[in-house]
């Protein structure tokens, strides 16, 4: 059974077509990069997978069952700007907030919940900073808090929305290593980005998206310049293509 299967998915937003005929699958152990320019529909695809947006056609199966919000097989890591970073909360409590839905109404976190949070913090190397207010973290540390918050539910599938955006190269590399090792631990990881270099470097498979799927394959198989000009809408002489050829 596939971890994730998207079948002929169509999504409209505000009366306009945003995604058309999306077919995509994801297995455990894979780290797949979803690449596309701004507005390509990357976030919309993740939201459709999480059943947070209405779909026009097609279906999404998570471990063989239709997706719905609140399923703990999927860990979601939204873009960093979705989070209120000036909120007076410590790193460990921010990570615990990821278990709010699982805990349910009127229940307070118990020993098992704190153990899950501790494991997640260990996993992203934030244990030493667990009592720090989230407002005093760097961009890379903030991204790790969001990953830990998703991991606190021990999901088997991870969806990451632009984890590299706005981070410098060393920080990207560190995060890339984390995602690679998560995939190595039998997670299925899907990560959106518009950063080609980071994606080629870390992903086992790339999916090029611009409203529809333009290509899907191993980085080495995506040498055809036309795929990239079609996805990113750049000209034949774009530096992007030089990068593709170099990789």
């Amino acid at each position: 059974m596939r971890a994730l299967e998207v079948d002929q998915l169509d999504v409209d937003l505000g009366g306009r077509p945003v995604l058309r005929d999306i077919c995509l699958h994801l297995d455990r152990g894979e780290l797949v990069g979803l690449l596309g320019p701004n507005g390509a529909g990357k976030t919309t695809l993740l939201r459709a997978i999480l059943a947070l947006t209405r779909t026009r056609a097609g279906r999404v199966l998570v471990e063989g069952k239709p997706s719905r919000p609140g399923r703990s097989e999927i860990g979601y890591v939204p873009q960093r700007h979705e989070f209120t970073w000036d909120f007076p909360i410590s790193v460990e409590h921010a990570v615990m907030s990821g278990r709010t839905g699982r805990l349910g109404l009127l229940r307070r976190p118990g020993v098992a919940d704190w153990r899950a949070v501790g494991d997640a913090l260990d996993r992203v190397h934030l244990t030493e900073l667990r009592r720090r207010p989230v407002g005093e973290l760097s961009g890379g540390q903030r991204q790790r808090v969001l990953v830990a918050r998703a991991l606190a539910l021990a999901p088997r599938i991870l969806l990451l929305d632009e984890p590299f955006t706005g981070l410098d190269m060393p920080t990207q590399e560190l995060l890339g290593q984390l995602f690679t090792s998560l995939a190595g631990e039998d997670h299925a990881v899907l990560m959106t980005t518009h950063d080609l270099v980071a994606a080629v470097d870390t992903c086992t498979r790339l999916v090029l998206l611009n409203g529809r799927i333009i290509a899907d394959g191993h980085p080495a198989d995506l040498q055809d310049a036309e795929l990239w000009t079609k996805t990113f809408g750049v000209s034949e002489t774009s530096p992007l293509l030089k990068l593709v050829r170099a990789t």
Binding site: L50, L52, R68, P69, G70, R71, I74, Y76, P78, E82, F83, T84, F87, I89, A94, S97, G98, T100, G101, R102, L103, L105, L106, R108, R149
Partner: peptide, 21 residues
């Protein structure tokens, strides 16, 4: 009674929706 839910929504609406809140 609703403190932890209020905090979660205040922190991150998108994540809260995905948690089924």
């Amino acid at each position: 009674a609703l403190h932890k839910e209020f905090v979660a929504v205040c922190l991150d609406r998108e994540m809260s929706r995905s948690m089924g809140l």
